[in-house]
Nucleic acid binder design. Structure first.
Length: 520
RNA sequence: GGCCCCAUGGACUAGUGGUUAGGUCACCACCCUUUCAAGGUGGUAGCACGGGUUCAAAUCCCGUUGGGGUCACCA
């Protein structure tokens, strides 16, 4: 898609501060951001806080903060009192009122004194008759004898009766527009309700404020969720009333629950913050969400994109039309890809504080200088990065790198112990005591040389060694793990383990042996 | 219910009249291997249906079905 020469692309993300950033909202923000970056245009954020009742204190800041954490940063901010921030609609009320006045003067809008009860009753009646619920236009000026002095409308105004201002939708005209992702769409104005523009509390409705702001802020492309498609005719009518050129519209397919309804809480997390808290990285989240409804196409088989790469390759033309189920299986896979590729220092930054709090929890008197050194942690990272789903698991799923095992996985012990295991282990310890070079390679050689003349397979010792030193039956390569642990720690854990696990001698009948005792 | 949108395997999708319908995730099998992962190889599985148009249709048209959105002084 091309814009008129000289016309700069300007997009906006316009959340209402009613809660946390939703993943659907993140995708909308992302597409707006990407399109602006791609075309070297501007991306702005506007807080749509025209509903005083639903407004949540601090939600605007949290929204912005989360957005920033994912790398989506607005290009403009304005001064509010002492600080800079996004555009905020509640600070622009006089603007909306001025434009409302204009519409009233042009007779494109009118006062409406119908009460909420009347409206509700009317709506129910129409529903019962199978009609589309629509305002009955009772307060159209010609119905109420005009707006001249002495008229019903004037009287109500003088009495300060609460009222709203409604737009006057022309009868039976066809409203057509070309949606960037959906193509041509057509509506009949007869199906469009006389939308409230100004509420009785003096605040504008979304429809009114966003049209005015999009025009004033010179937004070139309105990119938003498909749930807004059916209010396009109202907006287009407003642009027409003002004689303004409407921005191009792009309605994105919705993000869906597994049951294909609009993505919502209840069927899992939807707040971006929750995903971040669980340990998903912003790179993976952005990558995942970008691919929900967009792809590079043309036989391109790439799945992993950084924000920078997306800025280069994104295009609105390649946004799909069908809703996409938000299925986190692929997010999990992406997260692993990122963990594998992430520079060690970055992981270190995340992990250091985690280890610190683990150490505080244990409050041991042991010397922790070695195990909390960057060099040691770096080794742990390299052994663990291919085996975890989240960075934090490098600490939480492998505490054996930092603490002696407090217990041994019983199942693993029963599976891996033979009647003579402890005896062989004891002999091997005496060999280990003499080993100078505690490297993985040498440990492997030592073990194999030890085991061969005894007619045992390496696995006979490998598994018990793993269990005694780590407490569990799975993990990184044993030799590399022992190298990282270090000789002193390995020997200490093995000796202690042998004291705690005993196999009754009379048990001869092969595996699995019975009667293994694990003491605390 | 009115209006609007949508429709390729379980999920995300490529495909714009002629392809053995391709890729990724998930799943299964095998290989590698001390375990767990990772990696490698292979596999199961798809054009919602019915009519047209055309020599030829996943692709174009119409209809049906199914799904979704929206009908607030909420956004």
């Amino acid at each position: 898609m091309r814009t008129a020469p000289g016309q700069r692309v300007r997009t906006r993300f316009a959340p209402s501060p009613t809660g946390y950033l939703h993943v659907g909202g993140l995708r909308t923000a992302l597409y707006n951001y990407l399109y602006a970056k791609k075309t070297d245009g501007d991306f702005i954020v506007r807080i749509e806080d025209t509903d005083q009742a639903r407004k949540v204190e601090g939600a605007d800041r949290s929204l912005l903060k989360t957005l920033e954490m994912t790398g989506i940063v607005p290009d403009e901010s304005i001064l509010h009192g002492g600080h800079f921030g996004p555009y905020v609609q509640s600070e622009r009320l006089d603007i909306y009122r001025r434009f409302c006045r204009q519409l009233l003067d042009q007779k494109n809008a009118y006062y409406c004194f119908s009460t909420a009860e009347e409206l509700e009753e009317n709506r129910k009646l129409q529903m019962k008759q199978g009609l589309q619920p629509k305002y009955n236009r009772k307060w159209l000026p010609e119905e109420m004898g005009g707006t001249m002095p002495g008229s019903e409308i004037r009287k109500k105004m003088q009495e300060n009766v609460p009222h709203v201002v409604r737009m006057r939708v022309p009868d039976y005209i066809s409203i057509m527009f070309d949606d960037v992702v959906r193509g041509p769409v057509e509506f009949d104005s007869a199906t469009v309700d006389d939308q409230v523009l100004m509420k009785s509390d003096g605040f504008p409705t979304y429809h009114f404020a966003s049209v005015i702001d999009d025009h004033l802020m010179e937004i070139s492309h309105v990119i938003r969720g498909e749930e807004w498609l059916s209010s396009m005719p109202k907006h287009l009518l407003l642009y027409d009333f003002f004689g303004w050129e409407p921005p191009k519209a792009a309605h994105l397919p919705l993000l869906l629950n597994p049951d294909r309804s609009k993505l919502s809480k209840r069927q899992g997390d939807v707040a971006v913050e929750d995903f971040l808290k669980k340990g998903y990285s912003s790179e993976a989240i952005i990558n995942f969400v970008a691919l929900l409804g967009w792809n590079e196409g043309e036989g391109c088989e790439r799945e992993v994109y950084s924000l920078e790469e997306l800025e280069k390759t994104f295009s609105l033309e390649r946004v799909g039309k069908a809703g996409a189920v938000f299925n986190i299986e692929k997010l999990d896979w992406l997260e692993k890809q990122y963990i594998k590729a992430r520079p060690q220092e970055k992981i270190l930054d995340v992990i250091r504080p985690l280890l610190q709090s683990e150490l505080e929890k244990k409050s041991t008197d042991m010397n922790v200088d070695h195990i909390s050194s960057d060099e040691y942690l770096g080794q742990v990272i390299e052994l663990m990065r291919e085996r975890v789903s989240f960075e934090h698991e490098i600490i939480t799923f492998s505490s054996y790198f930092f603490f002696d095992p407090e217990a041994y996985d019983e199942k693993a012990v029963h599976k891996r112990w033979a009647p003579d295991t402890n005896d062989v282990l004891r002999d091997f310890i005496t060999v280990l005591e003499t080993v100078e070079d505690f490297s993985a390679d040498n440990l492997e050689k030592t073990l194999k040389d030890f085991v061969a003349p005894r007619e045992k397979k390496p696995a006979f010792l490998i598994h018990p060694l793993r269990i005694l030193t780590s407490g569990v039956g799975f993990g990184p390569s044993l030799y590399h793990m022992l190298e990282v642990f270090g000789k002193e720690t390995v020997l200490r854990r093995l000796r202690k383990g042998l004291e705690r696990i005993s196999v009754p001698q009379q048990e001869q009948g092969g595996l699995p042996p019975r009667g293994i005792v694990i003491r605390d």
